[in-house]
């Protein structure tokens, strides 16, 4: 909080004194965290208002034709529909903060119980896909840059153009066709997890979902890595190192590679952002019990509390990843730390 006030007091153009007093990474991080909190708050307001403008009475639309005046009244009390909109919002938002997410409208289960296990499953999927996607992307990009205009480079260029255009579900169906149902029968076409088991205990069900997401994200990372690596290889400092007689391997690993990963971090972050939304379709296709699949069924059942919560959480994840990316990118490139 102190950081914030000094930031505000400094005004739009911080004096040199302020800048030197505070570490620039810290300054950016604190500014971003504040912006992020405001964004998440606004997102929650948008989600809440959007779901509150349900045409007709929410209680009636949930109970349907079987509604009686008594049951409608009971549900209205349960949903706090008898109170003002600000009070309703506050009740809902403070519930989220307390970890009390209300009850699912379709089965009366508590939303917290419904989503907590699924969160873990989705997190496993996102982290694995993000890790392998980054690994493949960075490697492919670096190799393409080293072998510029050779067959590998061209193959990567063409295939990334195609892969970045394809919808996730088409890639997923292609993989299922190839590895599960028609050509080979190596892997399960759907990734069912019996309740109580974690995805890591049954790694074979993770292969196709993770592979789908890796194929979606790695081309972006590879392209950026290639461009950054070529720029690094053509730079003066690499030229200077060459003239000094430093071995090509040393130059590659200690100069070109670290300097091209820094600009690539932004793109890696963007791809984690994509994954937050991309899991929806992929989990649905593979019947993988994560929050994406829960969101789709909640939308089908118009299960408002579940929708509200998952959407707010995905948005919050998005904001957090954005902040982390900015800070990591800043740490990774010292030059930009002082650029205002």
């Amino acid at each position: 909080m102190e950081v914030l006030t000094s930031e505000l007091a400094a005004g739009p153009e911080p004096s040199i004194e302020v800048r030197s007093r505070k570490h620039p990474v810290l300054a950016l991080a604190s500014r971003r965290v504040m912006q992020g909190l405001v964004t998440v708050f606004l997102v929650s307001v948008v989600v809440f208002l959007a779901t509150e403008v349900l045409p007709g009475n929410a209680a009636y639309s949930i109970l349907g034709r079987s509604a009686t005046p008594e049951s409608i009244h009971k549900l209205e009390l349960q949903l706090h529909l008898d109170q003002g909109i600000v009070a309703q919002y506050w009740y809902w938002f403070s519930g989220i903060l307390r970890g009390d997410l209300g009850t699912s409208m379709s089965n009366g289960q508590s939303v917290t119980a419904l989503v907590s296990a699924r969160f873990l499953n989705s997190a496993v999927l996102v982290l694995l896909a993000g890790f392998f996607g980054t690994l493949v992307g960075v490697l492919a990009g670096a190799i393409a840059a080293l072998r510029r205009d050779r067959p590998f480079d061209h193959a990567l260029s063409i295939s990334s153009l195609a892969l970045t255009a394809l919808p996730e579900f088409v890639i997923a169906i292609g993989l299922v066709l190839l590895f599960a149902t028609n050509v080979f029968h190596w892997l399960p076409a759907i990734s069912l997890l019996p309740p109580g088991t974690t995805p890591l205990s049954r790694p074979h069900v993770l292969v196709l979902p993770v592979a789908t997401l890796v194929l979606v994200i790695f081309p972006y990372i590879a392209r950026m890595m290639r461009a950054a690596m070529i720029e690094a290889l053509e730079s003066d400092y690499v030229e200077m190192a060459r003239l000094q007689g430093i071995s090509a391997k040393r130059i590659l690993f200690f100069q070109a590679l670290p300097n091209s990963i820094a600009p690539t971090i932004q793109v890696i972050g963007l791809n984690f952002l994509y994954l937050a939304g991309g899991i929806v379709v992929v989990e649905y296709i593979f019947d993988y019990p994560g929050i994406g699949q829960a969101l789709v069924s909640a939308v089908n059942n118009r299960d408002i509390p579940v929708i509200q919560f998952i959407v707010v959480v995905l948005a919050a994840v998005y904001v957090v990843v954005n902040i982390v990316t900015d800070v990591v990118a800043l740490i990774g490139s010292p030059r930009r730390r002082y650029a205002q």
Binding site: Q35, T39, V40, L42, V43, V46, V47, A50, T51, V53, L54, P55, L273, Y274, A276, G277, G278, V280, V281, L295, V296, A298, V299, R302, I304, I307, V311, L314, A315, Y318, V319
Partner: peptide
């Protein structure tokens, strides 16, 4: 630009699903 930031925080498909769930 602040409104853009808020909209950007929704993954595109999720935003569409939210609207579809309403109407």
């Amino acid at each position: 630009m602040r409104s853009a930031d808020v909209l950007l925080a929704f993954p595109q498909l999720v935003f569409a699903l939210l609207l579809v769930s309403i109407a």
